[in-house]
């Protein structure tokens, strides 16, 4: 009995290794039947998070549409949200083929079980946040999805991200355009942008997850679901964001380290956000403490997702 189990385990291990070798040699999978259970789990987990992140933009962007300053601004943010819902639709559609029921996932699942990121769990306060959301948040998302498009060994997922990335690039450009404009609007608005950037920047930095010394060779990398590690992706984000901020006169807690030849944060991750003052405490904490904060989530998550799962009519509308 025990011998049979060992033999089975060895056989499974051998198929895993064979698959990893094939993938390392550049093979692309096209169908579920080519996957090992472990590959499939890692892929599905990655796609499920991506789908949740896209759908979370509905509650996030709704207020931004409602408080938009003009017809043009309202069109711009509605257009970005339309893109995001298109991305969600593609992601959930793909998950259907893996046995997910997207109606259940979107409309019936307990909001607590959505895997969204901290960055998406705070309401937008003004159009400044819309610009920063694009500049900081969409930028981070775009870097993640570009990596997946370039490297993902599951062909259909990689291909589906072409449209996603084509559109995300516009969101980032829109953010740069907005923030550049606001930074030319005099000291009062510049100050408002700086205050909100102080809030947004660490959220963007932690979008990419734990640092590589804590979490480096993950299954996602083994199976080439993605190509770059958390720190590598964070570095790309810093390379794009920090020079832009310097150019428009925004201060951010990061700089170029000419000795190391890379951008570095001025603080050591992880740090905690004080949810009462909405200010960051830059003292380094432990990863379990940070994970606990992420798990608890930001103030928009549960109400926002619950709103998506309910309907309001009549006097509740106006």
């Amino acid at each position: 009995m025990a011998q049979a189990a060992v033999a089975r385990e060895n056989a499974e291990e051998a198929t895993e290794v064979a698959l990893q070798t094939r993938i390392k040699a550049g093979a692309t999978l096209e169908d579920i039947s080519e996957m090992t259970p472990r590959y499939r789990d890692v892929l599905v987990a990655t796609m499920a998070i991506a789908a949740d992140l896209e759908i979370m933009t509905l509650p996030l962007d709704f207020d931004a549409i409602a408080f938009a300053p003009s017809i043009n601004d309202r069109i711009a943010i509605a257009s970005a949200l339309q893109d995001e819902m298109g991305h969600a639709q593609v992601m959930f559609r793909m998950l259907e083929d893996f046995g997910f029921d997207s109606y259940h996932q979107v409309f019936e699942r307990d909001p607590k079980n959505f895997k969204t990121f901290f960055l998406l769990e705070f309401g937008n306060l003004s159009p400044i946040d819309v610009g920063l959301g694009h500049l900081v948040g969409d930028q981070a998302g775009y870097i993640t999805t570009c990596d997946l498009e370039q490297n993902c060994s599951f062909g259909p997922y990689s291909r589906s991200l072409r449209k996603v990335n084509f559109e995300e690039n516009f969101h980032v450009k829109r953010g740069e355009y907005m923030i550049r404009h606001y930074m030319q609007q005099g000291p009062e608005i510049r100050k408002r942008v700086q205050e909100r950037m102080d809030f947004w920047f660490p959220l963007g930095a932690e979008w990419f997850g734990a640092t590589d010394d804590v979490k480096s060779r993950t299954d996602q990398l083994h199976y080439k679901i993605r190509g770059n590690s958390n720190d590598q992706l964070r570095q790309i984000w810093l390379q794009r964001l920090v020079p832009f901020c310097e150019q428009v006169g925004l201060k951010v807690p990061a700089h170029f380290d000419s000795e190391k030849g890379i951008y570095v944060l001025d603080y050591q991750m992880p740090i905690l956000l004080n949810l009462e003052t909405m200010k960051w405490d830059f003292r380094t904490v432990t990863w379990p403490e940070k994970l606990a904060q992420w798990k608890k989530g930001g103030p928009l998550k549960l109400p926002g997702l619950s709103r998506m799962q309910t309907e309001l009519w009549g006097q509740d509308l106006w």
Partner: peptide, 10 residues
């Protein structure tokens, strides 16, 4: 109605 007029984009 539209809000935050001072932050309208050109």
């Amino acid at each position: 109605r539209f809000k935050n007029r001072e932050l309208a984009m050109p």
